[in-house]
Nucleic acid binder design. Structure first.
Ligand SMILES: NC(=O)c1ccc[n+]([C@@H]2O[C@H](COP(=O)([O-])OP(=O)(O)OC[C@H]3O[C@@H](n4cnc5c(N)ncnc54)[C@H](O)[C@@H]3O)[C@@H](O)[C@H]2O)c1
Ligand SMILES: NC(=O)c1ccc[n+]([C@@H]2O[C@H](COP(=O)([O-])OP(=O)(O)OC[C@H]3O[C@@H](n4cnc5c(N)ncnc54)[C@H](O)[C@@H]3O)[C@@H](O)[C@H]2O)c1
Lengths: 230, 230
DNA sequence: AACCGCTTGTGAACGCAGGTACAAAGTCGC
DNA sequence: GCGACTTTGTACCTGCGTTCACAAGCGGTT
């Protein structure tokens, strides 16, 4: 019963599986029927052996001497990632960032559908963004209950993010993607992922500074031929 | 003088240092003069011992028995992250996402200033977004050269991201933050960080499914992937 | 001035992820 | 039908990151 996990998939691997799935979609559009791990890895920007190890968590799904069947691997990855059917999501805080997300077509094509847009600003309520109408924040609980949304996205100001999070969790949402620059606290059983864009910029600034003031980096004139695009 | 860098700082630590810096800003606003590692760690959502180890990469900067001086630690982190002065950034692709970033006040307060906004759409050129005017993509090289921007942010469609990246690198940009869902290839000496929002959602979907289908047996019924398409 | 309690800083062990190298396996060519 | 080539799948190793646990150091107190 409880030991029914043949293999556990590391979270870092799951993130890469999603990238592979996107690359496969492009290959399928191009009419390709099979791919090798080397080609797939190059397109995804990872090591070929690492890619094979990632895929091996799903069990053998390639053919030795030939490669991976594009269509079959797509199905396998789609099932593994849990996006076989479209997943309903709610988005709270339809400001600049929230509106950009709600209006982005790339999510729907990846299996994510925003079924509820919520905002506290009366001026925003009623706006149509990305095929959905913005509703008042008071309806959060009823929207979550009515749509059985499993994923909540928070793009409100930081000072209200925790209270919005609490309401989402109380309403039954178990997965949260947070763009507000605060550490959310949630009960066990709820998954939170945080996207912190300021942190990304600061890491880049650090690497930049480290390169300048660090070691004598002038000894690497290797002009790497930027390969890839194809 | 400053004993150079006998210690190398792991990238994961750098990302957390940026979070600590933000928490410290909040504490400083609240009038606090000192903080303990436990309190700081709780606010940042990390382990107290890990936080102390992170800070120890910068050398001893706390007082035993008391804690860390808020102001002093802020200065130390600011210097370590290379954001003592405002860093000039260029943003390419002023669409929905790019406009949200350009108009976001949180970057300026963290030491990042968008000094160049570039877009290929003539209808966008001339718009003022976040105190800066959108300029035609042809001026990319001159803007980078004129502002000595060290960080480039790409929010264009995926199919042109690599070419935009190449032009940024050729113009002298050595740090790139990429929002387009493609793996950019760059020469050695250039740092790229990728933000992939679809991947974040898919990881959440996976965790959600794993929680539901974990205890009961959910062996994927796919027997043989032999069936090739086409 | 010396003790005591609190907090930092660090050493060591653990677990995990990534990379390399090799063996298994299946297909294509003859 | 058989050999050889290609590519997968995996075992081993190395390095990094995280956590636990403890000793060192400082302020406050008597
Ligand atoms: N815009 C960016 O580029 C950017 C970058 C990094 C981080 N962020 C973070 O993302 C979040 C949103 O940023 P933004 O630029 O879109 O801000 P914004 O002010 O444009 O949007 C915030 C929206 O949240 C709504 N809101 C406020 N309180 C609410 C509540 N209690 N319930 C529901 N909705 C509420 C507001 O009405 C507004 O529409 C912020 O936390 C910000 O720090 C944004
Ligand atoms: N909007 C989102 O929520 C979201 C989420 C995830 C990923 N993304 C990615 O971010 C990128 C931008 O998304 P968006 O929603 O802002 O798209 P968008 O279409 O609104 O904006 C793209 C902008 O890039 C400009 N552009 C096109 N070609 C260009 C070129 N060669 N040089 C300079 N500028 C050019 C366009 O004129 C447009 O203004 C896309 O790659 C998208 O996949 C967006």
């Amino acid at each position: 019963m409880t030991q029914s996990r043949p293999r556990i998939v590391p979270e870092a691997t799951v993130a890469r599986l999603a990238v592979y799935l996107r690359v496969l979609a492009g290959l399928a559009d191009g009419g390709r029927s099979h791919v090798s791990s080397g080609e797939l890895a190059a397109a995804a920007g990872v090591n070929p052996a690492g890619l094979r190890k990632d895929l091996s968590y799903l069990g053998p799904c390639g053919v030795r001497g030939v490669g991976y069947a594009v269509a079959g691997l797509q199905e396998r990855l789609t099932a593994a990632l849990g996006v076989e059917r479209s997943r309903p999501c709610v988005l709270v805080g339809i400001g600049r960032l929230g509106a950009a997300l709600a209006d982005y077509a790339g999510f729907a094509s990846r299996g994510f559908e925003f079924v509820g847009l919520l905002d506290a600003d009366p001026a925003r309520v009623g706006d149509r963004v990305g095929g959905c109408t913005v509703r008042p924040i008071e309806e959060l609980e009823s929207v979550v209950a009515g749509t059985r949304a499993s994923i909540g996205v928070i793009t409100t100001p930081a000072d209200v993010a925790q209270s919005v999070c609490d309401r989402l969790v109380a309403a039954g949402v178990r997965s949260i993607l947070n763009f507000a620059p605060v550490a959310l606290s949630v009960p066990a059983g709820v998954d939170v992922r945080k996207v912190d864009l300021s942190v990304e910029l600061q890491v880049l600034a650090f690497l930049d500074q480290q390169r300048d003031g660090g070691p004598p980096t002038v000894v690497v004139p290797v002009p790497v031929p930027a390969g890839g695009a194809r």
